[in-house]
């Protein structure tokens, strides 16, 4: 999983902004390995947030581990239902962030297969625990991915819509606008203006590869 985060180095005189790409899973794994080793525990890490402790663990050590990991925003979820929800979320994210694009098979069966539970069960479980549905979560993640790709600027909107399995650019624009209340172009302009990359006043034309490819689409 790759995310962009913003590192802000605050000096008294100048601010330097770095835009970095990182693998959150890898980072979390490193932290967990470090902390577990620190407490002298033997363990095996499962694929999706599962830690199997091989030796016995005392109450105090567990509390210690919990606070250690909490420091990094990692919660120990002992609840099986929560684990399943988290696993579902991870499957969805992994699916959307795959470089080769979304799976060709039906998404519901893909998730069910990956989490190893029936889709109906997962659907209900998800709704109970997350204030949203799997469907909405997928849309939200897809739009988040689209936002990231738009800001990277390497792909045109047509290519992004293809990569995220939208039937057309119009469909992506539609869902983007419906989800964020903004058009992809104004989203791009807002973030760029926030970063100070452009100083365009609103209403002004901005240079965007999103528009050019789309305009040629209606011919």
């Amino acid at each position: 999983m790759y995310f962009f985060i913003v590192l802000v180095t605050l000096n008294t005189i100048e601010i330097m902004k770095l835009y970095v790409k990182y693998d959150i899973h890898y980072a979390v794994n490193v932290i967990i390995r470090e902390k577990l080793t620190e407490l002298g525990l033997e363990f095996e890490l499962g694929g999706l947030g599962e830690i199997e402790i091989l030796n016995e663990i005392s109450e105090t050590k567990l509390l210690q581990l919990t606070s250690y990991l909490n420091h990094y925003g990692i919660d120990i979820v002992d609840n099986l239902k929560s684990t399943l929800v988290q696993k579902t979320k991870d499957v969805i994210r992994e699916m959307i962030y795959k470089e080769e694009g979304l799976p060709t098979s039906k998404i519901s069966s893909y998730i069910a297969e990956k989490v190893n539970r029936s889709y109906g069960y997962l659907h209900n479980l998800f709704a109970e625990n997350t204030y949203t549905s799997i469907g909405n979560y997928i849309i939200m993640q897809k739009i988040e991915r689209a936002k990231q790709l738009i800001m990277e600027g390497d792909l045109t909107l047509t290519e992004i819509s293809y990569k995220l399995s939208y039937s057309s650019v119009a469909h992506l624009s539609y869902q983007f606008k419906k989800t964020t209340g903004l058009t992809p172009s104004s989203f791009q302009r807002i973030i760029k203006r926030r970063r100070g990359e452009i100083e365009t006043a609103p209403g002004k034309e901005i240079i965007t590869n999103l528009a050019s490819t789309n305009a040629s689409n209606n011919k």
Partner: peptide
């Protein structure tokens, strides 16, 4: 809540309703 729990990029958090 999603932005907080799902590790989404907060820089991209803009929504107009």
């Amino acid at each position: 809540w999603q932005y907080h729990t799902s590790g989404l990029n907060k820089e991209h958090f803009v929504l107009s309703i």
